[in-house]
Amino acid sequence: MRILLSPSETKSVGGSGAPLDLAALSLPALTDTRRTVAGALVAMCVDDPDGARATLGLGDSLAAEVTYDAHLWSSPTAPALSRYTGVLYDALDQSSFTRATRSRAESRLWIGSALFGLLAAGDPIPHYRLSAGTRLPGLGTLRSVWKPSLTAATSEWADDLVIDLRSGGYQQLGPVPGAVTVDVVTQYPDGTRKVVSHFSKHHKGLLARSLATSRAEMTDIPALLRVARRAGHTLEHDSATTLTMVTLP
């Protein structure tokens, strides 16, 4: 089973790993596209820092993010699962993993990225700033850059159960055919439901934690539902590729 997560705008700083080595990342078929996107990002930030701030949508308080991008090739790295922070990753709470649960999580978790396409949880990456909707000079939309290579790279997952918890923008960078998506809704006492927006990340993080750390092998939806329900989640199987996670207000 593979669980795909969205990245986060906020990231930890520093790290103890060697500088970025694209050849060391998972899904080596993405190396050329990663090099193209990374090269365009670094060049923009080195050659035109003010323009880079505007392109990346950064205010004065986040001006340092341009510097991080400019030093992408020389900055220390950290495992992707430790690099990303924010609501989803707080709920995932990877710092509390035992050695055994971390091993299971790292074998199942993947993280979408505007810079790297898709990352395995343990892939070493530096601090960076780049969002799915950014248009880098000379490249056009990141969707047009990533979609062909991501589609090809994930074609080998055709026989795997893939749970795609990425947000819409990151799903569009590289849809995975046959992947199961999860909608999060709140059900009120009168039975009405409302799609969860902001707290969707929190609930997806909790679900990802339960699935990623379980000792059970999940090769199909019924097995996944059993694990999720034992962990206290309410999931409904809407179609072959859609689940609904029901939460309370």
Rank of each mutant, 00 (worst) to 15 (best):
Q94D: 13
I125Y: 03
S131F: 00
T151F: 00
H233D: 11
S197M: 07
R108P: 03
A54H: 11
M44V: 05
S26T: 12
W146F: 08
T33Q: 06
R99L: 12
L206W: 03
A40Q: 07
E106N: 13
R226M: 10
A91S: 13
T55V: 14
R143K: 15
R135H: 14
D69V: 07
R102H: 13
A52F: 06
L25M: 04
L136I: 11
S239I: 01
T67N: 06
D32A: 15
Q94C: 08
S16R: 12
D69Q: 07
P137N: 11
L173H: 04
R35A: 15
L5W: 05
P79Y: 09
D123K: 04
T151S: 15
V145M: 07
W110Y: 09
A24I: 01
V182A: 06
D47R: 13
H202W: 14
A91K: 01
S12V: 06
V195K: 14
Y84E: 11
R143H: 13
Y170R: 05
L173D: 03
A78Q: 08
V37S: 04
S214L: 02
S210K: 05
T55D: 00
G174Y: 08
A114K: 04
P19R: 07
S103A: 15
A158S: 15
A114S: 11
H71Y: 00
S167E: 08
S214V: 04
R230E: 15
S144M: 13
S6N: 10
S16P: 00
G15E: 03
A153K: 04
D47T: 11
S239G: 13
A52L: 06
T241S: 14
A152V: 02
H237W: 15
A152D: 09
D48W: 06
D90G: 11
L161E: 09
A78K: 04
L88R: 02
R129L: 07
L109T: 03
P126W: 02
W146S: 02
A80G: 10
P177Y: 01
I221W: 08
A43N: 12
R226A: 14
T192H: 09
H71W: 00
V227T: 11
L136F: 06
A91G: 09
K204L: 15
R135L: 08
P126V: 02
P124L: 02
G232Q: 05
D48A: 15
E217Q: 10
V176G: 04
F97T: 05
K147C: 12
L173N: 03
W110K: 09
R35S: 15
P79A: 11
K194F: 05
T67E: 11
H71L: 13
I3G: 03
T134S: 09
V246E: 11
P76R: 10
L211R: 11
I125L: 06
D123M: 08
A240K: 12
R193I: 03
S239A: 14
L72D: 10
G14R: 12
L62W: 07
H127C: 13
L30T: 09
T141V: 03
A208K: 04
A212Q: 05
M1P: 06
L235H: 06
L142N: 01
T181C: 09
P137D: 12
P137G: 12
K147H: 14
P137W: 08
Y68L: 12
P177S: 07
S12R: 15
A152P: 01
S200F: 00
L81P: 02
S149L: 05
T192Y: 02
T77Y: 09
R53Y: 03
G168H: 07
L225A: 07
A63R: 15
R83V: 10
K11V: 06
G168Y: 01
P222M: 11
A132V: 10
L5T: 07
